[in-house]
Amino acid sequence: MKPTKVILDCDPGHDDAIALLMAHKLPEVELLAVTTVCGNAPLAKTTANALRIMELIGATDVPIAAGCVSPIARPLVLGTADGPSGLDGSPYLPQPTIKPVDMHAVDFLAAVLREAEEPVVLAPTGPLTNVGMFVLKYPELLNRIEKVVLMGGACYRRDEYITPTEFNIFCDPEAAEIVLTSGMDITMVGLDVTMRVVVEEPQYEAIAGINTPLARVVEDWLKFYEKLHRGQMGIGGALHDPLVLAAVIDPEIIETREAHVEIDRTGTHTFGATVADFWGLRGLATNAKVASQVDSEKFFSMFYKSLEM
């Protein structure tokens, strides 16, 4: 079976780093390009992190393009889970010998799509600023995107309510609204599902048992990354972004429900929330497939496989 051609738009980020690793190592994916965006850290840092990660995993042949330095209509509010650098706890990462391409990520995305022999899967794991700007600037190329599988949003049931807002959407809700109204085939993988692929003691034991250089690096990343989760929620680190990559490889790893999704851009306590109408009560056409369940065992098998290579 031919590998799936993927462009990964990200803001590394520990979990973005693992998604990049999986995209490079797993044979089911052909990683065409990486684009970076502000989010977990300012753009200069997320781009530097992407370069360092790709150098570490031996993916120096994959082009990287830096994108938007701020959200479309608001000041940048940084994420907090990954530390000030966006990838704290990784002092051993190499200084990169590779450099980003001399083109803005939005224009580079257009160039890659034009040259691709067939439509490409776009996997955004950070704020949707680059993708939203692409939709506005290059609407004639939207048919070159097979589908968008994004990490963002939250659609909790009443018995599992944690927060109405997820960071990627909160960071740039205008971009998210643009993407959701673009007409593209969109799968939204939100916090209510990614919080079910959590690294706890059994997963740490499995990673330690793999005992490859990459597995040891990832173990260090995860031990730093889980600090926020453990301190605030009493659980290990959730692998939000890697689940998106896994769902690109095997769509059956998640279950989805179709819905019309809108972004709350005015709420005091729900600003940035993804409001999903699963029952068509507002009479609006569906615009996204919203993840509702995950096969966590299948996900971790895929994750471990990437560390063995």
Score class of each variant (00 low, 15 high):
276 A>V: 02
286 T>H: 10
31 L>M: 09
76 L>Y: 08
135 V>T: 11
248 V>L: 07
32 L>N: 10
278 F>P: 05
250 D>S: 08
191 L>Y: 11
160 E>R: 01
229 H>I: 14
221 W>E: 00
6 V>C: 02
86 G>H: 09
198 V>I: 12
269 H>A: 13
184 M>Y: 00
168 N>I: 05
288 A>N: 06
194 T>A: 07
179 V>E: 07
38 C>S: 15
183 G>K: 02
24 H>F: 06
208 A>E: 12
217 V>C: 12
75 P>W: 05
285 A>N: 14
241 D>E: 15
133 M>Q: 12
157 R>Q: 03
37 V>H: 04
7 I>E: 11
49 N>M: 02
34 V>M: 11
173 P>G: 05
191 L>S: 14
179 V>A: 05
180 L>A: 03
169 I>H: 03
238 A>N: 08
113 L>V: 15
268 T>Y: 13
156 Y>T: 08
48 A>C: 08
262 E>T: 14
145 I>W: 11
285 A>T: 12
141 L>M: 02
73 A>H: 14
22 M>Y: 02
34 V>T: 06
274 T>S: 11
218 V>P: 01
39 G>L: 03
10 C>P: 05
49 N>E: 08
36 T>C: 07
186 I>H: 02
271 F>R: 06
68 C>L: 10
281 L>D: 06
271 F>Q: 06
119 P>A: 02
306 S>M: 06
171 C>Y: 01
240 H>S: 15
97 T>Q: 11
67 G>M: 09
245 L>I: 15
135 V>H: 04
92 Y>C: 08
109 L>S: 03
112 V>S: 03
307 L>E: 04
57 I>C: 14
276 A>P: 08
77 V>H: 14
120 V>L: 07
115 E>F: 00
246 A>H: 07
197 V>R: 00
297 E>G: 05
89 G>D: 08
134 F>E: 00
224 F>R: 02
219 E>D: 14
139 P>V: 10
264 D>C: 11
208 A>L: 14
244 V>L: 02
169 I>E: 04
144 R>S: 04
70 S>W: 06
233 M>P: 00
90 S>L: 11
243 L>W: 03
255 E>H: 04
217 V>G: 06
267 G>R: 08
232 Q>G: 10
239 L>D: 12
188 M>H: 10
206 A>N: 09
60 T>C: 15
232 Q>L: 13
162 I>E: 00
